[in-house]
């Protein structure tokens, strides 16, 4: 069981390492979307600070959708998804492993980029730390819930766009708590409440999403 999970994760990391261009796209998309905002709304530091949490979080949601579209699509196309589904190991573990691998490839680098972008948005150090903490707790939610959408839209025409329609509404709590944490600390109210709620949401996603993703994969491959 453990070996299966590790194989799934290691396999995806290996594939990502062989194709660096693929996953860097999502990171650069994140950076670019965030950088567009000062150009659009003006460079007043006060204003930037106010919108920073929301902008970074919305950009993270969009970037995750960009990378999730391919989470299962490539494996579906070359037939390896079928092989994975036929494994004697439970499909839930496959879904969990894929989500973990996606987070390592997509979410983790985001945590490293976010402080730099936070500085561009004139965030104080304290708020940057909370921003990183909120992304650390919140981005796994994006990988987990997004996996459901990726599995449901497998092999459909316009799957990527459809994925956005299905999954963005489900992301709402993560966005509110995540961006709210940054706002909370800026307003001097602390961010513990938001971060704990975000943590609870993450825990729930972790419990439910792999099962639903597994069921969705079975439905989509049938």
């Amino acid at each position: 069981m453990w070996r299966f999970l590790m194989t799934v994760i290691r396999r995806d990391l290996l594939l990502a390492a062989r194709r660096k261009g693929d996953w860097l796209t999502a990171q650069f998309f994140f950076i670019m979307v965030v950088s567009m905002f000062p150009l659009g709304i003006g460079a007043d530091p006060e204003q930037l600070r106010r919108v920073a949490g929301g902008v970074l979080w919305v950009a993270a949601l969009l970037a995750s959708l960009l990378s999730l579209a391919r989470l299962y699509a490539d494996d579906h196309r070359d037939g390896s998804l079928e092989q994975m589904l036929l494994s004697p190991q439970p499909t839930v573990l496959l879904a969990l492993g894929k989500a973990i691998a996606h987070w390592l490839i997509f979410g983790l680098p985001l945590l490293l980029i976010a402080p730099l972008l936070g500085m561009q948005f004139a965030l104080p150090l304290e708020a940057i730390l909370v921003l990183v903490a909120s992304l650390a707790i919140g981005t796994p939610v994006l990988s987990l819930l997004g996996g459901i959408g990726a599995a449901l839209t497998l092999g459909l025409r316009g799957g990527g766009t459809l994925l956005t329609l299905l999954i963005l509404p489900l992301y709402v709590p993560a966005l509110i708590f995540g961006a709210g944490a940054v706002d909370g600390v800026l307003a001097g109210m602390g961010a513990e409440a938001q971060l704990s709620l975000l943590g609870a949401f993450m825990g729930m996603s972790l419990l439910i999403a792999p099962w639903v993703t597994a069921a969705a994969l079975r439905v989509s491959v049938d």
Binding site: I148, L152, P169, L170, V212, A215, A216, V219, S220
Partner: peptide, 11 residues
Amino acid sequence: DRAGALLILVG
């Protein structure tokens, strides 16, 4: 049917 049902339940 099934894909929609899963999405509705998650929702």
